[in-house]
Simulated scan of single mutants.
Amino acid sequence: MKTVLVIEDEKELRESIVEMLTFEGYRVTAAPDGVEGIMKARELVPDLILCDILMPRMNGYEVLGELKKDLTTAMVPFIFLTALSDQNKIRQGMNTGADDYIVKPFLRKELLEAIESRLEKSALYKGYADQNLEKLRRNIISFLPHELVTPLNSIISFGEIIKDHASVLSASELSEMGDFIFQSGKRFYDLIQKYLLYIRFAVNKQSGKQEEVCTNPRTVILETANQIAESCQRQDDLSIDVSDFPLDISEEELQIIVRELTDNAFKFSMPGAKVSITGSPANGTYEIMVSDHGRGIPKETFRQVGAFMQFDREKYEQQGIGLGLFLVRQIAELNQGGIEIQSEPEQGTQVIARIPMTAKH
């Protein structure tokens, strides 16, 4: 049985709605004002809230704003009951996060259809979220232990060989094993750093960030991309054409965007295939486009960019925990920008990161 909370200061209307919804099989709780309504919403966490706009003590906009701040009530479907026919006022309610509105006086059928529609949509969202959560759980269980253990195994194994047989190993053998240990340690370090960045930017997205400006993006992009190309031994495959404009983003964040996109482009394309990076103003923002001619990303999956999500992990061996592209999106959105992915299987991928330029530009 679904629970509906009715927040309405007009006693007759409130009681009428309660009686109507109870008859239809809903469990109904009512509150005569916004303050009590918030208390009951947090206590009960109903399946849907009907709320008047013009009320004493706290109006409907304020009620919605308070409930959106609370993670336990933020996703509860919220429908305004309003006598206001002013479109600007109605738009204000929708802009604050309301799911729907009903203008008084309303018919029984209108109210019931609105409630049923929002509950159905909420169930669909929940089902989709549950699917993603289950996929995330499977991904973490299946490959996170592997990514953590593999470099550690290499470090331990080669370290043990050197410890037990150092006296009989040649200089070249020691150098080769030392290189394996170094690369494995670096892989493990990069993994931990990426996870820490994920936590940090997730926190920043909740709490906001200080405004910072990168005054030399061309230098940052060139240096970062070339470092990745060198580490992949694909310097000849990289082409860069970027212009210089001050950007509303920190130098560190820009480095992360370029590093992750360039690394992905090399990771998902074969040696000899070109990877290009361009950067220039477009439509009021600065667009960084990283293009490769690799295997591409299926359209049904690149809309699901998220933490610990990898593309076609079952078909292709790949390192990492699926945080790179997610970090890029988090950073871009944190700086009032965004990303766009264009891809065709077996033809290649373009990822565009849009970053605001400083006001004077």
Rank of each mutant, 00 (worst) to 15 (best):
M1L: 11
V6T: 06
I7W: 01
R14K: 10
V18F: 10
E24L: 08
A30H: 06
A31Q: 03
V35F: 11
G37F: 02
D47Q: 10
I49P: 02
C51L: 07
M55C: 07
E66A: 14
L67P: 07
K69I: 04
F78R: 01
T82W: 03
D86C: 05
M94R: 06
A98D: 01
I102Y: 07
I102F: 10
P105V: 00
E113L: 14
I115M: 09
S117Y: 11
S122G: 04
Y125H: 13
G127P: 00
F143H: 09
E147T: 01
P151V: 03
L152E: 07
N153A: 12
N153K: 15
G159N: 04
D164E: 15
E173R: 11
S175F: 11
F180D: 11
K186M: 12
Y189V: 03
D190P: 05
I192L: 15
Q193C: 12
Y198P: 00
E211K: 14
V220S: 04
C232F: 15
Q233R: 14
L238Q: 07
I240T: 02
D248E: 14
I249F: 02
E252L: 12
E253F: 12
I257W: 07
I257E: 01
F266T: 00
G272M: 08
V275S: 03
V275Q: 02
I277M: 07
I277N: 05
G284K: 06
G284M: 01
I297V: 14
G306Q: 12
D312R: 12
Q319E: 13
A332R: 04
Q336T: 08
P345Y: 04
T358R: 13
H361Q: 11
